[in-house]
């Protein structure tokens, strides 16, 4: 009997925990979309976690839907992405994309020994790398979501960030390999 109750409450706690996690994920996303600074996001999330841990309430019941709660906070301080930052994001992404393409074409050119737009293919590879790097550099600095309780980035976010970086890295490598293979086959 006792063990059943124990299991039951443990199960209930697990269900609550996963619901809180899901709510927090959605809330962070919604706050990000509204350009609330990372440090503030950390505070907001930590407060939600502390509140539901103590009250046992469902987060959506206590705080409303994540999007609406995020809107309340965004209105509180009036955060909006400044124009220069937006321009930098767009320019950075365009430059990085163009650089990546140039890099790919350059790699193909190197393998087949053909010039790229009358440039030496190695030059195209170099130019591609430089463009990609400067594009990445132009992007606004990532604003980390800091947990006020630990002073560090939220564990779950840094994990998903690492995963995203891994996926991006793998995609770049795959693209380079594909370009080389294509070049060899064509050449």
């Amino acid at each position: 009997m006792r063990s059943t109750t124990g299991n039951g409450s443990e199960e209930a706690r697990a269900v609550t925990a996963s619901r809180v996690d899901k709510y927090v994920d959605n809330l962070i996303f919604a706050l990000r979309m509204r350009n609330v600074p990372g440090k503030e996001i950390g505070q907001i999330v930590a407060e939600v976690e502390a509140h539901v841990a103590e009250s046992g309430e469902d987060p959506a019941e206590a705080f409303g839907r994540p999007r609406e709660y995020a809107r309340t906070w965004a209105r509180n301080a009036g955060h909006r992405q400044s124009r220069p930052e937006l321009v930098r994001s767009v320019l950075g992404i365009v430059a990085a994309g163009a650089g990546g393409s140039l890099l790919g074409v350059g790699v193909i050119g190197t393998a087949t020994g053909e010039s790229v737009w009358r440039l030496h293919p190695v030059l195209a590879v170099l130019a591609g790398i430089i463009m990609m790097a400067s594009g990445a550099f132009a992007l606004p600095k990532t604003d980390h979501v800091i947990d006020p309780r630990t002073g560090q980035e939220f564990e779950r976010i840094s994990r998903s960030g690492r995963r995203a970086m891994l996926i991006t890295g793998a995609a770049v490598v795959a693209w380079l390999i594909a370009a080389t293979v294509l070049a060899v086959v064509l050449g």
Binding site: Q43, I44, E47, V48, H51, V52, S55, E57, A62, F63, G64, E68, Y69, T72, W73, N76
Partner: peptide
């Protein structure tokens, strides 16, 4: 909580 914490903030 959705009302209170923004007020505290």
């Amino acid at each position: 909580g959705g009302t209170l914490y923004p007020v505290l903030g």
